[in-house]
Structure formats: structure tokens, C-alpha cells
């Protein structure tokens, strides 16, 4: 469990984090979203005890970070941004070193190393120097050192950055498997990831929380929520006909993709109406779908300054 109360962090004149409060419970995977420089990494650095907050309290597993930082650090596994490690070391000895520094009893150190090596598929690079590894492998070594002591709390700063789709999938599966008995916080730019692994998403902008919902709730904030998209050859007459439907608020047409998106009047289901109309008019439809909502649009809406917003909520 992680409790943050009124966290603030100033770097000189700049307020990186501004009165941030949230609680993450066991079994939860909490996603930090936000534009670059929003304060995601700074918040993570404060929770892991790397930098002290200017004001505010952090409790991890009911231990106050300011009172007993070493005890808190014992409970946390942390993957810093960019997955730093000792480049001149080989993967195996590096993990053994971390196991030792993590106070794992010497009899269990090797089995702890073997277990993370197996879970992250590092067998083939066990005797390889870290600086000769690809970005994806370096990231996995970083993840391995973060989970080697089976921590109660896991903090991952952009865990899938730089991984290929297969590796991303693998890491997400790993996170999902581990989430049952841990509290996990991860930051990401990839919005699909929020859906794939997070139970809860917090959007941070300019150091403050601007949204705190489940990914599904967040999608329903989108203009695209329950909108109907279809790909077909359309003429203007037909477009206007759709636009004239009572339940339709707006229609957009993407000429390149030949994709039409029909936005419903607030809260209405218009799938039947739209598909019915298309059928009546005998339009050849290549694809037709109802949208759940687009996270990237929600994200842009709530993290951009008012005047730049594409649509008003």
C-alpha cells in the first residue's frame, strides 16, 4: 500500500509536483499518465526515497518514509527511467550484486537470481556484458533487479519503453501476474498499455492530478464514447442524411481512410440507427464498429491548456 498526502516538490522556482495526494492499494496496478515534464518521474523518485519531497508525507506499507527510509526501500522494487545499470558488468554478477545489496540471505541469493532470470528470459545473456545488450534486454535486466527480492511495492518508470511488441506483451503479462499480491505503480506514454495492465489511471499535468479513474471510465469521457465508425464510399447527400438524424450530434469524414465517424447526442446509443440507415441506402460497408472512447483524445483534452483544446467537454 502506498499513501501520498499533499506531496509537493520545488526545484528552485519550478513547481514539479504540486499538492499531490493519492492512495494505491494492494492488488492494484496504478498507471501514471501525463505529458513529459508533468511530474510523473519526480513523484516516483519521491516515493522511492531518492529525492525528498519539499512538503508532504509518504507512507509505504504503513511505514513513514521520512522516519525509516531504509525499511521503506526494503519493501520497494524500483525501475528508474532508462533502466540504469553497471554497463561493464555481466548480467549474472550484476543481479547477484543487487541480491546481496537487497539483503537477501546468502543461501537464497542464487535461487532469487535464477528465478528472475527465468521469468524475464535472460538465460541467453547471463554471461554477457550489459553494455553489449540491446535496449530491450537492458530494460529486462532493469526489471529483473526491481523484482529480485519479491517486493510488496513495485514502481516502474516507463517499463516498456523501447521494447518490441513481443517484449511489451511479455512485460505486461509479467506485471499482470505479479499484480495480485503487490501494489504496482507504473508510468507510461503508451495509452493502450493503460488498458492492458492498469486497474486505475491517474493523469498528471503540471504536477497536479487532473483525472483519477478506471481506464473504462476515462474512455467514457471521450467524445468518441459510443460513437460509430464505418469505412465506406459515401457521397455528400448521404453524409447530410446521417447528419440530419435526431440522435446525431456531429459527423466527421476522413477522406484518406474513407472512414466516417458519427458522434451521438450525449449518452445515446446510435449504432442501430446508423447501421439501419446504411442498410436501407444499400451502402457497401467495409467495416462498422462502435467505439468505446479514445484515451488519447481524453488525454489531450485534459492535459492541454483550455484554449488549445480541440473540443470542450
Amino acid at each position: 500500500m502506498i499513501e501520498c498526502a499533499h506531496l509537493s516538490k520545488d526545484f528552485g522556482e519550478v513547481k514539479a509536483v504540486d499538492d499531490l495526494s493519492f492512495t494505491a492499494h494492494k492488488g492494484q496496478v496504478l498507471g501514471f499518465l501525463g505529458p513529459n515534464g508533468a511530474g510523473k518521474s519526480t513523484t516516483m523518485k519521491m516515493i522511492t526515497g531518492f529525492i525528498p519531497p519539499t512538503t508532504g508525507d509518504i507512507k509505504v506499507c504503513d511505514i513513514d518514509l521520512a522516519e525509516d527510509p531504509v525499511a521503506v526501500k526494503n519493501k520497494i522494487g524500483y525501475l528508474p527511467e532508462g533502466a540504469p545499470s553497471y554497463h561493464e558488468m555481466k548480467v549474472g554478477p550484476f543481479l547477484q550484486f543487487i541480491a546481496r545489496m537487497r539483503n537477501i540471505p546468502s543461501a537464497q541469493q542464487q535461487s532469487a537470481v535464477d528465478s528472475v532470470v527465468a521469468r524475464l528470459n535472460l538465460n541467453h545473456v547471463y554471461y554477457q556484458k550489459i553494455d553489449t545488450l540491446s535496449k530491450g534486454f537492458k530494460r529486462r535486466v532493469g526489471l529483473a533487479q526491481a523484482i529480485i527480492h519479491d517486493p510488496e511495492v513495485l514502481i516502474l518508470d516507463e517499463p516498456t519503453d523501447g521494447l518490441d511488441p513481443n517484449q511489451k506483451h511479455q512485460v505486461r503479462e509479467l506485471i499482470t501476474t505479479m499484480s495480485k499480491n503487490k501494489t504496482i505503480i507504473l508510468s507510461t506514454h503508451i495509452l493502450e498499455e493503460v488498458h492492458a495492465v492498469c486497474d486505475r489511471a491517474i493523469i498528471i499535468s503540471q504536477g497536479a492530478i487532473v483525472a483519477d479513474n478506471t481506464p473504462t471510465e476515462m474512455e467514457s469521457m471521450s467524445r468518441y464514447h459510443h460513437a460509430v465508425s464505418f469505412v465506406a464510399d459515401l457521397d455528400t447527400a448521404l453524409l447530410n442524411k446521417i447528419k440530419d438524424l435526431d440522435c446525431v450530434r456531429d459527423v466527421t469524414y476522413n477522406a484518406r481512410l474513407k472512414e466516417t465517424t458519427v458522434f451521438p447526442t450525449q449518452g445515446l446509443f446510435i449504432f442501430d440507427e446508423v447501421s439501419g440507415l446504411l442498410k436501407n441506402q444499400g451502402v457497401q460497408v467495409i467495416s462498422l464498429k462502435m467505439e468505446a472512447g479514445r484515451l488519447d483524445e481524453v488525454f489531450r483534452n485534459i492535459t492541454q491548456p483550455e484554449q488549445k483544446r480541440e473540443v470542450q467537454r
Binding site: 522511492t48 526515497g49 526501500k73 532508462g82
Partner: peptide, 11 residues
């Protein structure tokens, strides 16, 4: 190299 973040967050 940013390793300091790793070192300083170990117990």
C-alpha cells in the same frame, strides 16, 4: 549514467 538513482533506492 543515472546509476545513482538505482544505488540510492537500494536499502
Amino acid at each position: 549514467r543515472g546509476n545513482i538513482e538505482l544505488l540510492m533506492t537500494l536499502p
